[in-house]
Design a protein around this nucleic acid. Structure first.
Lengths: 354, 354
DNA sequence: TTGTATGCGTTATCAT
DNA sequence: ATGATAACGCATACAA
């Protein structure tokens, strides 16, 4: 309380005093929530500009209003990794759309194993959108639910009555597999997304599958196995081209054990597998067929069109935003279900003649 | 005030009462800012769980503390476009790093010509990072400065004593141009980023240049013209591969006016130009040389390595985060200057013999 | 170690 | 159209 402190910023009370009006009047001038005589209005504005007052303190307004105008988007892992994934970006894009009517800001938060969740617990937000599928999400969910704020979960098992945005992962995967089977393939391998927050890369055993927590991976695998029950599967550590290359090499390097088709759980992984195949001198689709999942635009396929399942990523994001908006308006949130569209591309063909 | 309202959430005062302690004691239990007897501590926690109290209300805590734990990142244009740009995501990545010690969240905001800036004026944030180069930034700057919060500007003319994160755009561009000149090219064209918030695509005239507001574009062009003063330039409407394709076609379609080298102000644009060249049956670099700027990883170049100027995007983001952290700790923010590294790739070669 | 008292800066309600 | 007042929920300085 020494006089050397930075001069306290003017408050609305200061402005009101200077203008010779009540604070409530001054407040109304800024919020526009009631009519104010033009003369008073100008006096208040003049006083404000006099004192360098630029508007109500958002923190105080938040407290008073009970709203901060911010919606948290919780992504798993590094933000960078999240934005490396075109599906995530597309969802974010839709989300900003769906949130537009609220004119709410988007607070990016990560949901990482290391964190103690304090950020989630103490962020001044009005609602949460959880994106991602890791089992870790469930832990975040606890924290978030406790706060009693609206929550929407995109692709994940929310539990309870939490509205979700879901996708027909199993059915869509089965459709891709069926296409491959119809082409005549019997010797097929899968490249899956990560099984859990550990993101360990490696062959999927029954044991690992039993402890898996990532719903998307599990669901898509289930769909694939409907068609190819015995096909081997390797989990990648994430949806990245580089991961696809690594796993693709492992799968295709040995001519004796090489499958005639590889189905990946994401387009990025599929592109990686194609790269690996090319590295090994294999032609796609003549020597090996490759299919993906997502239906994103991928570069570097040199004229090939990926066989894949196209998911409505932007719509999913938009739906999430809309549900948040609904809930913030006091309406109940509703789970929205989306379906994929199979797209036959040029990366799959009948298996090579023996 | 009917009895049908949702039951009011418990406050820390309720918890304290239930536990039979003072609110200050309960507060301390949650903040950990002072020692509390284990017994009381447990009683408070028990009371909290009893009442379903999950911790202090962030909005109230923000007001009281004068901090919200949120840093705003202001990007120009659609958020989607921002995340489509690898340079931006890289900066964001570094930014989260630099901000890590504050464990602050990142609030995404856009700075659009249409907006009245109300979002910027009323977001409950502790500091601002302005990314982007449009002249529009200057308007945002006004709003933001008025709030008296720490501001850091990445690539843009901040004015005043606002700390900036800068890049040697002109010098680095000149280096690229010099490389092209050294290869023997004299007939060169430039593809620039957008000149202003309008993002109009088209040939750059002296007139347009005079009213340009985007510093990055201007600076890089200045560097290029140091080496090729008379080269024609076309502005793209953004840093996108598709834009590069469009402009590339315009530049390369006519065999008579075709330059032997194209220098783009971003790698994404350069890739687009290469695509356009391929479409037209031109070989890169045999028929036409192409250079870019940024040094991002780009797929789909089919084995070519882009000649470019590699900028330390992640470091820039990190530096911005660090400066914000400094300022929030009461230290003065300092402008940080970064330099690019020229990288000769395989997309540039001597001009074809006539 | 614990409790008391105050104020953070607003805005909604109600009365005038 | 304007003004007085009471919360909003918390954290801190200070006293005990």
């Amino acid at each position: 309380m020494t006089s050397h402190e930075t001069p306290r910023r003017a408050t609305i009370a200061d402005v009101a005093r200077q203008a010779g009006v009540a604070t409530s009047t001054a407040s109304v001038v800024f919020s526009g929530k009631a009519k104010v005589a033009e003369a008073t209005r100008e006096r208040v504005l003049a006083a404000a500009s006099d004192l360098g007052y630029t508007g109500p303190d958002p923190r105080a307004a938040s407290l008073r209003r009970g709203r901060s105008g911010i919606v948290a988007v919780v992504l798993e892992g590094h933000l960078r990794a999240a934005f490396l994934d075109p599906v995530t970006t597309a969802m974010m894009d839709g989300l900003t759309d769906g949130l537009a009517e609220l004119s709410a800001g988007i607070l990016l938060m990560r949901d990482e194993p290391g964190e103690d969740g304090s950020a989630l617990a103490s962020a001044p937000v009005d609602a949460f959108v959880l994106i991602g599928c890791s089992g870790r999400t469930r832990a975040s969910l606890e924290i978030v639910r406790g706060r009693g704020l609206p929550v929407v979960v995109i692709e994940g098992d929310a539990g309870g009555d939490i509205p979700r945005i879901t996708l027909d992962n199993a059915a869509a995967s089965a459709a891709v597999a069926q296409h491959v089977k119809d082409l005549g393939h019997t010797d097929v391998a899968f490249v899956t997304l990560s099984l859990d927050a550990d993101r360990t890369r490696g062959p999927i055993t029954e044991e690992r599958l039993a402890t898996a927590t990532t719903d998307v991976t599990i669901d898509r695998l289930e769909g694939l196995r409907r068609v190819f029950p015995a096909a081997p599967a390797i989990s990648a550590s994430g949806s990245l081209i580089d991961e696809g290359i690594i796993v693709g090499r492992a799968l295709l390097a040995d001519p004796d054990s090489r499958p005639t088709a590889v189905i990946a759980q994401s387009d990025l992984l599929a592109v990686g597998v194609i790269r690996a195949a090319e590295e090994l001198g294999l032609r796609v689709p003549e020597d090996v067929s490759v299919a993906g999942f997502d239906g994103i635009e991928v570069d570097g396929l040199g004229g090939l069109l990926l066989t894949t399942s196209v998911q409505p990523a932007v719509d999913k994001g938009r739906a999430a935003g809309e549900q948040v908006a609904r809930m913030l308006n006091g309406l109940p949130g509703e789970t929205q279900h989306f379906t994929c569209r199979f797209r036959a591309g040029t990366t799959t063909a009948p298996p090579p003649a023996r």
